[in-house]
């Protein structure tokens, strides 16, 4: 039955997107102040959401793949692109106050500067399309490690990595919460 393709998948796309946008707003990451204060290390809402999503999502998807109900959807680790791109992305995110998903969601909550930044995102995407041929011959051609996981790189089994990540998340959140409780 699954995965659905064609029209059925297209009909579900806005439903899944709707759930994502709803969650982003309820988690307050459609707020410039919350995201920028994460980058200023004053408010850890963004990390709490992202790390929880990664642990819950990752462990679940691992067992779904193991049960044959889902397939991994790994992207290539093109190191030149992801390192340079990630560094640029952080600069842009600090200036804009949003990442692309939260920016488009924040537009929906009435944030006019988020909408202006979304226009900037369109401009950035157009600039990238015109720079693509040059980048393909340089940055993107430097160092591609292919579709590898941390398990491939470290030799540690996936399940052990998930367990370690979950344990780290619990310890980190516990430390964070007790620190925040003291600060009040």
């Amino acid at each position: 039955m699954f995965p659905l393709t064609g029209t059925n998948a297209l009909l579900l796309a806005p439903v899944f997107g709707f759930a994502f946008g709803w969650l982003l707003h309820r988690g307050r990451v459609t707020s410039y102040d919350v995201i920028v204060n994460q980058l200023r290390l004053r408010d850890f809402t963004v990390l709490k959401i992202m790390l929880t999503a990664i642990v819950v999502g990752g462990v679940g998807v691992f067992f779904l793949v193991d049960a044959g109900l889902a397939r991994w959807a790994l992207r290539e680790a093109n190191m030149g692109g992801v390192i340079l791109g990630g560094l640029l992305f952080g600069v842009g995110m600090a200036l804009y106050g949003y990442c692309p998903g939260t920016g488009f969601a924040a537009m929906g909550t009435g944030n006019l500067h988020a909408a202006v930044g979304a226009g900037g995102m369109i401009a950035g995407a157009i600039a990238y399309a015109y720079a693509f041929d040059w980048l393909r011959g340089t940055v993107l051609a430097w160092w591609n490690l292919g579709r590898v996981t941390l398990a491939d790189v470290t030799g540690v089994p996936m399940l052990a990595l998930y367990a370690g990540l979950a344990a780290f998340a619990v310890a980190f959140f516990w430390w964070l919460e007790s620190r925040e409780a003291r600060a009040r």
Binding site: F89, G92, L95, G97, G117, M121, G124, A125
Partner: peptide
């Protein structure tokens, strides 16, 4: 600054082949 930041973030996200959602999560 929002326009400039959005442009830089999107250029970086395309270079990295994904953003906070597609790559990070």
């Amino acid at each position: 600054v929002a326009f400039l930041g959005g442009a830089i973030a999107m250029f970086g996200a395309r270079l990295a082949n994904g953003c906070t959602s597609g790559n990070g999560i």
